[in-house]
């Protein structure tokens, strides 16, 4: 039953996101051609760069809107009349939405990487596929070297980092579902109550992560994990610099964050399931 639900959910999301993702690739190809054709006209290249960034932003916004809208229309809207009369459990309905959203998030990320490769690999920039592979390899080596220098297991840190990104996406999705579910429990002002839960939980959540990191890894309370990500984004043009931002504070916060994400995901998943199973009130 879960696979059937995922199949139909994929069809519903795919009909919107496939054209959007295809458009991102198309803009990347146009951008690449513009780099080849307008070598001397830097203003045109800037326009195409902006166009690509804007398209990526639209794709992310579209992805969020489609996934949230699917959940709301299927669980709170008129399509709920169909979903909740299907002979399946509530957790299967939630899991199907969750899995499909993750699948389309991964496809979107792959689409973005492919677009970047299309744009980057051109004669004028001098970047070739071989050079790109070599840069990634040298960055990894430098990262291993840096982490060993501060007495950290590089493999463990890398796994924890990827897990952190994955768990963050998972937590973010279930947190949206939970906020919608909380909103439905109020006869009026559902959106306001849903948003209040969404933001207040995030605030408490971040506080727990910082307190946990302080107590376990002695990370200063003033330390912000976000600042490291901004540094990482700023230094994307020099890949080697990404490797140098790791420090024991960041690693400690990532580990505590992962544990809290897992606990939070479990709590919110059962919370959503409980609300829609025991307190369903489809209008």
């Amino acid at each position: 039953m879960l696979l059937k639900l995922i199949k139909y959910e994929n069809n519903a999301i795919g009909r919107v996101l496939i054209p959007v993702y295809a458009f991102v690739l198309l803009v990347a190809v146009v951008n690449r051609l513009s780099l080849d054709l307008c070598k001397s006209d830097s203003s045109l290249i800037l326009v195409f760069d902006f166009l690509f960034s804007f398209t990526c932003l639209v794709a992310i916004v579209m992805f969020l809107i489609v996934c949230i809208n699917r959940f709301i229309s299927n669980f709170v809207g008129s399509e709920g009349y169909l979903m909740f009369t299907l002979p399946t459990s509530t957790y299967n309905l939630i899991l199907s939405k969750l899995f499909t959203t993750i699948i389309w998030a991964i496809i979107g990320f792959a689409d973005f990487i492919l677009s970047l490769i299309i744009i980057s690999l051109n004669k004028s920039s001098g970047l070739t596929l071989k050079l790109l592979v070599d840069t990634i390899k040298s960055t990894t080596d430098y990262l291993y070297y840096n982490l060993e220098k501060i007495n950290q297991n590089p493999r463990f840190v890398l796994i924890m980092t990827f897990l952190y990104i994955f768990l963050y996406i998972l937590f973010f999705i279930i947190h949206i579902y939970m906020s919608v579910a909380v909103g439905t429990q109020f006869p009026r002002h559902k959106i306001i109550f849903g948003l209040t839960y969404f933001f207040s939980y995030f605030l408490i959540f971040n506080l727990i992560v910082f307190i946990g990191a302080y107590l376990i890894f002695d990370v200063p309370m003033s330390y912000s994990i976000g600042s490291n990500y901004y540094m990482m984004i700023e230094s994307l043009d020099k890949l080697e610099e990404v490797a140098s931002i790791y420090n024991p504070h960041l690693i400690g916060t990532i580990i505590v964050g992962n544990v809290i994400y897992v606990i939070s995901f479990i709590l919110e998943f059962f919370g959503v399931n409980k609300i829609f199973h025991n307190k369903l009130n489809l209008e």
Binding site: A12, R15, S78, E79, G80, Y81, L82, T85, L86, P87, T88, S89
Partner: peptide, 20 residues
């Protein structure tokens, strides 16, 4: 529950099918 939904065929007063 699941068992009852297997044997109940329900027609609501609303349109509940995907418009597309």
């Amino acid at each position: 529950g699941i068992a009852s939904k297997q044997i109940v065929s329900y027609l609501p007063e609303k349109t509940y099918l995907n418009e597309w």
